Simulated scan of single mutants.
Amino acid sequence: MRRLLLILLIGLLMVGGLGWALTRPADLERDLAADHQPDPEAGALVFTAAGCASCHAAPKSEGEDRLVLTGGMGFASDFGTFHAPNISPHPEAGIGSWSFEDFARALTRGVSPEGEHYYPAFPYTAYQHMTAEDLRDLFAYMQSLPPDATPSRAHEVGFPFNIRRGLGLWKRLFMAQDHVVAASGNAQLVRGRYLVEALAHCGECHTPRNALGGLDRSRWLAGAPNLSGKGRIPNITPGELSWSEADLMGYFTTGFTPDYDTAGGEMAEVVDNLAQLPESDRAAIITYLKALPPIP
């Protein structure tokens, strides 16, 4: 009996140790372009392309108030409701005390400065593809924004999803490090892929998810249920989206569809962000969308 209990104890310790190792938050192991001189002006474009204010500005804020990143937007899901945190440069309520390495690890690994996993409502599965130069430029720009002392709201997540350590397994299953679309040799397509798959994180809304919340990459950008419960996010592959390049450029610039309807809901904010980017970036996104395999 003692031998059996010892074997069981050793087995439990081995399983526990393996689980602890598999769920360990990832370290920041990449070139951080330490010799790059951060450019806040370039960082402002990264900030816009990534839609940071769309989630982290106070709801219904307008104009310059959109740059006060108090947080507060809620994201309802089958796992609970997640709230965008304060990411202003306030030293206590925001990220003002973070180092650049803290910032880069959060965006590309989904890990907090304290070593905890972030929930993937924060789209680090997309931001992991950001270049080190863009990360440095973005950090420099965000440090220049107004600090705000508004406390971040706690997520409303019940057991077992409130055990953040388990997100380490989720990341191993669903945080794919490769790109969805091959784009070698075509500079415009490469740029479009970077904007769609990384900065603008379009897949987070336009791609369906499995039962564990991972993106179904086999139906990339083929439409998904709207988490708000109101309708569906549309299929934007050529299997459904038949707009011409001119139609898409007009929509990304003005918000008007070819039928003279207008972008609404969260997409209105996306269009507002895209309209602030160089026309060449909007053209690159269009090239990417036209290159997607058509999915019915």
Rank of each mutant, 00 (worst) to 15 (best):
G158Y: 00
M142R: 01
S144I: 02
E156T: 14
G158V: 07
H155R: 08
F161W: 05
L167I: 12
T150K: 14
T150A: 06
A140V: 08
S152R: 07
R172T: 05
Y141C: 03
W170D: 01
V157R: 08
P146T: 10
R172F: 12
Q143T: 02
A176N: 15
P151F: 01
P151S: 12
F161R: 07
Q177Y: 02
A140W: 05
K171E: 08
G158L: 09
T150G: 09
H155Y: 15
L167Q: 10
S152K: 12
M175Q: 13
R164S: 12
V180T: 04
P147C: 08
W170A: 09
V181E: 07
A149P: 13
L145F: 07
A149R: 02
S184I: 04
V157F: 04
A140I: 05
R164I: 05
G166C: 10
R172I: 06
P160V: 03
W170H: 10
A176R: 14
A140Q: 11
R153M: 08
V180Q: 11
D148P: 02
H155V: 11
F159K: 12
A154P: 14
H155E: 08
V157T: 10
L145H: 07
V157Y: 04
L145R: 00
A183I: 05
Q177R: 13
P147V: 01
K171Y: 14
V181S: 00
M175R: 15
S144D: 01
A149M: 04
P151I: 00
S152H: 12
K171H: 12
L138S: 04
H155P: 11
Q143C: 02
H179P: 08
H179Q: 15
A154C: 13
A176Y: 14
D178Y: 06
I163D: 15
R172G: 10
D178W: 07
I163L: 14
G168I: 00
Q143N: 13
N162Q: 13
H179N: 13
A176D: 15
E156Y: 10
P160C: 03
V181W: 01
E156S: 11
